[in-house]
Amino acid sequence: MGKSSKDKRDLYYRKAKEEGWRARSAFKLLQLNDQFQLFKGVRRVVDLCAAPGSWSQVLSRELFEKNQYTANDEIPPKIVAVDLQPMAPIDGVTTLQADITHPKTLSKILEIFGGEPADFVCSDGAPDVTGLHDLDEYIQAQLILAALQLTTCLLRPGGTFVAKIFRGRDIDLMYSQLGYLFEKVICAKPRSSRGTSLEAFIVCLGYKPSSHWKPTLDPNVSTEDFFKGANIGRYELKDDLTYEEEKRNVAPFIACGDLSSYDSDATY
């Protein structure tokens, strides 16, 4: 869904080069943080779909350099970055090359955290698009759900989840389902993300785990099975297979990054 050839001409691309970020995406996370103070009090993070790693760079800088981590801190910072693609190492970041939609991957990440919760889960994942818009939207939703699966198993109550979305036909289904698990669900568009692209980020604040649903990862459980009984408004398989409209909800939209920041649609 991205337009890679155009990205190269853009100011953010040049600025990323200057500042040493691996991708212009770094500014998206930074602008999201300007708006929502995502990194406040955050020590333990999972960065999904992380390659080439600019978000991990931002996180590494925030958690290790800025927060002045000291050895006698009770919980040392931890960043785990996962992608299908290999990633060059980054200080303080544990990298894992794996498919996040594969049930086994999530178990591996949980293992790395060794039973401790995370404060923040983010995913900037985008699948290769086919051009069949409904299928592409479904695959994108699966990436988000896979990330959400991990989130429900790992995120501490009150924690934050951020994921890339493409605002297509069924995005309001996603907003509605996330609304069951978080205090606040916002659709945020950083100015560094092109206005002509459908890309945006779903910012989910204040994780509130369900009291009557216990998420469990099992290698034989698909994303669909996983959320069975979670009561988040997802259609569940019925014997009579009746058609049903699921709940939809429009999340509030917030453009972030201040107006004086560069416009990614402009030509300079």
Binding site: T101, I139, N220, T223, K238, D239, D240, L241
Partner: peptide, 18 residues
């Protein structure tokens, strides 16, 4: 009856298909 009768799969092979 156009109703669901059963489901089958192979253990551990439920990752996503294109």
């Amino acid at each position: 009856s156009q109703t669901l009768q059963w489901e089958k799969s192979v253990y551990g092979e439920k990752s996503i298909l294109y």
